[in-house]
Design a protein around this nucleic acid. Sequence first.
RNA 1: GGGGAGUUGCCGGAGCGGUCAAACGGGCCUGACUGUAAAUCAGGUGGCACUUGCCUACGGAGGUUCGAAUCCUCCACUCCCCA
Length: 417
Amino acid sequence: MADWLQPLRKRHLIQDATPLPETPQAIGAAYVGIDPTADSLHIGHLVPLQLLYHLAQLGIQPIVLVGGATARIGDPSGKKSERPLLPAEVVEANAQALAAQLQKLLPFPFTLVDNFSWLGSFALLDFLRDVGKHVTVSYLLAKETIQSRLESGISFTEFSYPLLQAYDFYALFRRYGCRLQIGGADQWGNITTGIALIRKLTGEEVYGMTCPLLTKADGTKFGKTEGGENIWLSSERTSPYRFYQFWLNQSDADIPKLLYVFSWKSEVEIEELLQKHEEAPEKRLAQRVLAYEMTARIHGEETARSVQVVSEVVFGTGDFAQLEALPEALFQQILREMPLYKVPSREVPLLEGLVQSGFFRSKSEGRQLIQQGGLAINRQRVPGGEVPLSTFSPVRGRFWLVQRGKKHLAWVEAPEG
RNA sequence: GGGGAGUUGCCGGAGCGGUCAAACGGGCCUGACUGUAAAUCAGGUGGCACUUGCCUACGGAGGUUCGAAUCCUCCACUCCCCA
């Protein structure tokens, strides 16, 4: 095994790889493909991008492919059933959104391509003659992703997906001398199809590598909230506060792996950090550092600072008065981190006001929560539903921080008065 | 085409004429303990009112009955077996 891979393995970035050349220079360029099935990346996409980043450090030219063509077909990998086709306009809009996000996100120069530019106008007969002829049906049928769908059904459309992706690899090999494709573990079948195609067409040796599907110590999938939602990179889909909290809440058991995978820090820095963390795990130092680094990277330093302030204030490690002292711009930012509910007046009984504003879905729900001691305003527990908002002194004249349990936060706004 | 089983709350799954807002398990929410961790324990989980009360709910529409998730009829859907 080529030893230039060792650091990457240490970072848990490699699950599987074809035999690789002795030096990274022999690879030339590497690509990762992302299908624009949504208008934002989520943190699962970051893993192969991290790998790409480290490969770039080794002198391999990084290429990111946005699958404007393949997203119109649908990748059967990892899916139990056929998926509805996305409208072409949606795919196009998504592709643009992803491209913009990638440009903002990646700290290194990379080549951005869209496979629509070569697949979009590929004539059917040409494709069947020049590409399809080189791959046998039995080869495709043997693929795990196809195999598992034979029972439940797979359309010809999805069946042909691996072939399209294989051609992408070939196209990039031709244009950029790209000899390596990376992807998530579920992409192995598609990647090897590309390798086989290139070998058939050119006799050249190319390579593939997959990243592990991250799991948490308890065996569940990493990258989803407890509710099962993805953690997205766009602030519209996942607020920066949520995003920060997601990292902060990772368990001790998972944090070393996460640092290795996601952090841009050097191995030495990570080891030092972990050592400090182990001396006093209750300080959650490693979680804090990672949460800050990730939030700053995705949402910017300023936002990262503001969500950090909120977190400290909310969880009691920071002084509540800090909110009063913040510059207006930062406070506005903080306001946007959580949902805002408007109450008609600061004198209506809390329970009623919070139901009207939509914070509680029903009076029963709110009453029960208050009875259990689960509602706090400005970090003070609410004793009963009859007291008005004005019992608590507002932040900046008209805002109150409402807290359901420990972690569910929102702002309530009442008219000045 | 023939025969059988089923459709219950967020999910799984009991209930088979009143005592059923519906056992039990999971999930979820809240609390205690804590490190915004893990584990554990406790309470809650249709709506309104809030001391016993009312309303809406057990695939849909009708019916029988003082009374139905429970019985009957029709309709819709799902699954299994045989051809």
